[in-house]
Structure formats: C-alpha cells, structure tokens
Nucleic acid binder design. Sequence first.
DNA 1: CCTTGTGTTCTCCG
DNA 2: CCGGAGAACACAAG
Length: 287
Amino acid sequence: MPELPEVETIRRDLEKKILNKKIVQINIKLSRIIKNKTADFKKILINNKFTKLERLGKLLIIHTSQPEKLLLAHLKMTGQLIYKKQDKIIGGGHSDKNQILDFPNRHTRVVFKFIDGSFLFFNDQRTFGYLEIINKNQLANKTRNYGVDLMNGKLEFEWFKAKIKSRKTSIKAVLLDQKFLAGIGNIYADEILFQARIKPWRKASSLNIQEVKNIFKAIKPILNKAIKFRGTTFNNYRDSDGNKGDFLRLLKVFGRSGEPCKRCKTGIIRKNKVAGRGTHYCDNCQV
DNA sequence: CCTTGTGTTCTCCG
DNA sequence: CCGGAGAACACAAG
C-alpha cells in the first residue's frame, strides 16, 4: 500500500538511478497496465530519457526528454518500481511467497532497459497500477482530483481548520480524501488519528479547535518520520532496490488489533470498518 | 468472503 | 429538477 512516504522514498532513490539514461528497450508483458497504445508508448520513450521525477500525493510524474511528454506512474495497491543493474536476478535461495527476489518475476508487467545495461521493472501483483504518457497540457486535468501535497504544498492551519469543519463525513474519510490532502492512505490516516487521540468515525465538523490542531500537528511529523525510515512494508511495498521499508515496527495502531495500546497501556487496539476501510484505534485513549 | 486507491456511478437532501 | 456531498460500487487477485 504505497502512500506518500513510500512513493517519496521511491522518487528520491530513482532520481539518483534512472535520470538522463537513454532508454534502449521496453518490454511490455501486460499491455493493460499502460493506458496508451503500446506502439505509441514505445515510440515516444525509446531513444529518449527520463529527465526529472516529481510526485503529487501518491502519483509519480516523470518528465522526459520529449519536452511535451510526461510519464505518469501510479502504484495503487501493489505496484513496485524496482531498479537493477542487470536482469535475471535470482534471489539467492531465500525467496518466500511474500518477497520475490527474482527480477523479472511473475508480477513484472513492464521492463525498461537503459543504455548502460540497467533495468527498471514495473511490478504489480494485482495490476491496479498504471503507466500513462500524457501531453503536458493534459496534466492539470489528470491532477484535478489531487489536493495539497503534504510535502510540497503549503499547509496553513486556518485553511485546514475551515476545510475540516465544513465536512459532514467522518474525520477518517476526510483524511483519506485525495482532493483535500494528497498522499494520506489507510495506514497513515490511522496513525495520525491515534497521535491526535481522535476516534476515526467522529464527524469532522464535530471536532473542536484543539482536536483539529492536534491532527494538523500530527500529519507532517508522522509522514516525515515514515520517509526517514523508508516507508512501511505491510505486505507488498518494496523500495526501488527491492527492499522493505522499516517503519512497520514504529506503527502505533495499524495492524495491531488485539494488542495493548503503546501509549496508555490500558486500552486495547481495536479494528472496525470506517469510511469503508479497515480502521485501527485505541478504545481507551482516542476520544 | 476479505483486502485497498482511485475513478465512476448512485442516492440522498435541501 | 438542480447541484453538491457522500456513499457505494467497480476494478484485480490472492
């Protein structure tokens, strides 16, 4: 489940690895991953280069040496972008069903080969993710459903408070709404609400100023810390080297249902459905 | 049956 | 009947 910290980890790493290398070959193993016609996709990228990597929420925006063309990459739930200096990497005998160390493998959908012989693999077990080349003038339309990026955009408390108070749905649904804030997914929404001591199903408009402030103050530190630890690997997420993120052990509530609360020591972490998603919270110290 | 990010469609309400 | 909000659904595969 790559959310902002995971996508940002990939972006920062790939920036050092793939930029300004000529793309010499593209192997499309599953064409529906690519929203363009495969012939067009190859024609636009082969013999060109990736020149800049940007991120908006969970969406990667990759500039190319074709000045009007951008490559969008979305990993959705199980997508991976993995860079290797050569292909046919075999996992050294310690593969398991959750960590396939061979590249390419059965989840590899698209392979880019660079002029120096290195490879970028787009892997996706569930195939919800996509790659799409667009013209620059289409970008605004593609990103119209993305609100403030939590690392790049400026986030002002008065605006944040007004938005929260205007919403009639649960605070969890609001945090997951990409049109409001771009980048928070199910894991970090639960962690933010735990940090702010707010029960996830509370109506957003019912929160008092101090509660809104507590959420506001929790967001960036949690995401920044998750980036520092290279993201959370709960199931499928891997960084661009194929390694797991290290933030899992620092999660306070997500995936901990039935365990005692790490903060109050008396509550038990519960899991309920809120906003249609599995939602974790302390039944004692979240109000 | 469950899981999730996002785009689309349905439904409700004033 | 409308616009907007929010809920529900669709998608895929294990």
